[in-house]
């Protein structure tokens, strides 16, 4: 019953998008974090999405293991990478954490980028929820097949 797979597929996407949203929240929360005395500052994080074939066991049973097009394509977060660009430096000699030249190093989070990421992932989240809702109502109608006669 391939309609049930829709829940696996969209469920994996919803989970991946919520992880992306989590990372965006961390980044935005640390947008104004300042480097401590050790010089280490928060680095913006990014998720990496990867397609994951979910139906390989089922297609292997049908002798189609090498046929990726038949398998359901879900998605998962394969990696969380750190943005290595240097943090922005602000001249503020009065700051307690300023270095010897009077510069304070802030995290390299780009707030505009993060907001765009947030909107994009929230829209994708909604899309996948809607796909699941549609699949659910179709399955309910399928279960009632032949009963209304």
């Amino acid at each position: 019953m391939s309609m049930f797979k829709v829940f696996d597929i969209s469920g994996s996407a919803v989970s991946a998008q919520s992880q992306r949203l989590n990372v965006v929240a961390s980044n935005l929360a640390n947008a104004d974090t300042v480097a401590g005395p050790d010089g280490q500052v928060y680095k913006a994080r990014n998720v990496v999405f990867k397609t994951v074939m979910m139906d390989t066991a089922g297609s292997a049973a049908r002798g189609e293991a090498d046929n990726p097009v038949l398998a359901s394509a879900g998605v998962r977060v394969s990696d969380v990478t750190e943005d290595q660009t240097p943090g922005r430096k602000v001249l503020n000699p009065a700051h307690p954490l300023a270095d010897k030249d009077g510069y304070v190093t802030y995290s390299n989070v780009n707030a505009v980028e993060e907001m765009v990421n947030m909107i994009s992932s929230s829209r994708s989240y909604q899309n996948n929820i809607e796909v699941m809702n549609t699949a659910k109502s179709l399955l309910q109608k399928t279960l009632q097949m032949g009963q209304g006669v």
């Binding site: 797979k5 829709v6 597929i9 969209s10 994996s12 996407a13 998008q17 992306r20 999405f49 397609t51 359901s72 394509a73 879900g74 998605v75 994009s120 992932s121 994708s124 899309n127 996948n128 796909v131 699949a135």
Partner: peptide, 8 residues
């Protein structure tokens, strides 16, 4: 559904 899940 697979296509929509992999939109990103």
């Amino acid at each position: 559904a697979s296509n929509i899940a992999n939109a990103d």
